[in-house]
């Protein structure tokens, strides 16, 4: 069985959510908030919201509020179309969000100061990650580690990894490509669409993708 040049270090991750003092009741206030809120807040409402409430229409909180709080469907669609997989820094993501809202408000001044049905509350997510005893040096061990990771850990390795690596990839694909030298498998793993899957689905899809390569 093929051995990795360096082991994959699994962690156990979870998040604590802090409620900010800032809130928005108009799109203009949302625009201001997006410029001034903390990185942890941008992270919470975009990266972290991907793991919650997969019944709702959009997976980032700003888009969801533009729709349900402000009834501004075009803006909601524009915000939802920002794919966090393209973002390797919070600053880059913040720029995309602010330019969308600023641009929309400029084109639709009457929407800017209209009161929303409900306020938007800026929150922040703080990540806790503890290295696990388990490390993977083969694909079989990686597969087993994925099977035994809790959902927030999968989120940590598959979604939030972009902010740590500053690369448009995830921890699993990065390791598969660099330590296992299997670029095709790395690409297939990275193609899994987290937007259309729950984290439980993601686990199944990861295992389904990796498993056929285990004995190759």
């Amino acid at each position: 069985m093929k051995q990795a040049s360096t082991p994959f270090q699994f962690v156990t991750a979870s998040y604590l959510i802090r409620i900010g003092r800032e809130r928005a009741v108009t799109l203009a206030e949302l625009a201001r908030g997006l410029h001034s809120c903390s990185d942890a807040s941008i992270f919470h409402h975009t990266f972290q919201s991907l793991e919650r409430q997969h019944y709702i229409s959009f997976s980032n909180d700003f888009a969801q509020w533009a729709l349900t709080g402000c009834n501004e469907a075009p803006l909601a669609e524009r915000l939802a179309a920002i794919d966090i997989r393209d973002c390797t820094t919070i600053e880059g993501l913040r720029d995309s969000l602010t330019s969308s809202v600023d641009g929309y408000v400029k084109l639709n001044p009457s929407s800017s100061s209209r009161l929303s049905f409900e306020p938007f509350y800026f929150c922040e997510a703080f990540e806790f990650a503890v290295p696990r005893d388990e490390r993977a040096t083969t694909l079989a061990e990686l597969e087993e580690g994925i099977r035994t990771s809790n959902l927030q850990t999968l989120h940590y390795h598959f979604i939030n990894s972009r902010l740590r690596l500053h690369l448009q990839t995830n921890d699993f694909s990065h390791w598969i490509e660099t330590a296992m030298e299997l670029p095709e498998l790395a690409r297939r793993v990275d193609r899994i669409d987290i937007y259309m899957n729950t984290l439980d689905d993601l686990r199944e899809e990861l295992v389904r993708t990796i498993h056929p390569w285990v004995n190759q």
């Binding site: 806790f128 035994t148 809790n150």
Partner: peptide, 15 residues
């Protein structure tokens, strides 16, 4: 909730 969630609880409890 799955064994993995219980494992995560134990990991953080150790801290």
């Amino acid at each position: 909730v799955g064994q993995s969630e219980i494992g995560a609880l134990r990991t953080f409890a150790k801290q």
